[in-house]
């Protein structure tokens, strides 16, 4: 039992920090992106999605959504149990590889010999509580929920062959979002996706080296290089667009709505517009009755 919080790393619920953490584990080629809706559209740009991380401010008592795995599947699934109260952390001494990392969704922090991350050293106050994390991943044709506060991975049932696992996890997440929106619990949803940009950049560097070292004809390599540069540019444009979308989505639009109404009310226009709208609605209603 670890009592000294100094040995633990605290991390923020930010996709950039998560990505960094994953890279420091030595896992390459993946990154974490925040997602804002469960529409198929929002997943298209991200696919393939290796896992989802659902994080929320605090947890109410709830019925387990499936059965806790206790059989020999545990040999293949890496599951870390949360052992420290205040920091929402989990404890693991196992070496980490990609398969394990995929299963390590619910970890808010990882115990390591060297401290990888040291943010927020203060104890969270009552209003400023830390987040709890739950991971969702497909393992060998079944969907699992990994919650560090549970006794083991939770089996959420099979993923029918030929089906994208995202379609299976969607209703599960949807239910959670619904519940947490109603309870005003803050939550984020993040996806572990392939970092295509990094893969392309690496291929470019390698090709450049090959061209430099080669003494013969390099036209085919140069062609490939040009193609990769175009793909890289597309990825970069995509990322810039992402940043803009994130700014747009993180914004609070309530002041805009309320102030627009306030101006209309002050100008004596709110009620006339409202009555007009009601007339229109009534006319529409009459029309649909006919």
């Amino acid at each position: 039992v670890v009592s000294d919080a100094g040995n633990w790393c605290l991390i923020e619920s930010d996709p950039g920090v998560f990505t960094d953490l994953i890279h420091k584990f030595g896992v390459k080629g993946v990154q974490v992106e925040e997602i804002w809706s469960l529409d198929d559209d929002s997943f298209i740009n991200l696919k393939p999605v290796h896992g989802l991380i659902f994080l929320f401010k605090w947890q109410q008592e709830e019925q387990p959504s499936g059965t806790v795995v206790q059989d020999n599947r545990l040999d293949k699934i890496f599951f870390a149990k949360q052992v420290d109260d205040k920091q929402c952390l989990c404890h693991t001494s196992n070496p980490i590889n990609i398969a394990q990392l995929k299963a390590c969704g619910p970890t808010a922090g990882i115990y390591t010999q060297q401290t990888l991350f040291e943010f927020d050293k203060q104890q969270p106050s009552e209003d400023d509580d830390v987040f709890h994390f739950v991971g969702y991943i497909p393992i060998e044709g079944r969907l699992y929920e990994l919650d560090g506060l549970k006794d083991g991975p939770i089996d959420l049932g099979p993923i029918p062959p030929g089906t994208d696992w995202l379609t299976v996890v969607q209703p599960v997440i949807q239910r959670r979002i619904q519940k947490y929106s109603e309870g005003e619990i803050h939550f984020n949803l993040m996806a572990i996706v392939s970092d295509r940009k990094m893969v392309i950049e690496r291929s470019i560097t390698q090709l450049q080296r090959e061209i430099e070292e080669s003494e013969g004809d390099t036209s085919s390599q140069e062609e490939e290089l040009a193609r990769l540069r175009v793909t890289l540019e597309t990825e970069e444009t995509k990322r810039t667009r992402w940043q803009i979308e994130n700014i747009r989505r993180k914004h609070n639009y309530l002041p805009l709505i309320v102030n627009m109404m306030k101006i209309l009310a002050e100008e004596g226009k709110l009620l006339p517009i409202y009555h007009n709208a009601r007339e229109k609605a009534r006319a529409r209603h009459e029309k649909s009755k006919e």
Partner: peptide, 22 residues
């Protein structure tokens, strides 16, 4: 909300299109 006080007809709750018109 943030220093603004408004009274809004509650009929808006039955019909969201009224809000979209405003």
């Amino acid at each position: 909300y943030s220093g603004v006080t408004l009274e809004i007809p509650s009929e808006i709750c039955q019909d969201i299109s009224l809000l979209f018109e405003i």
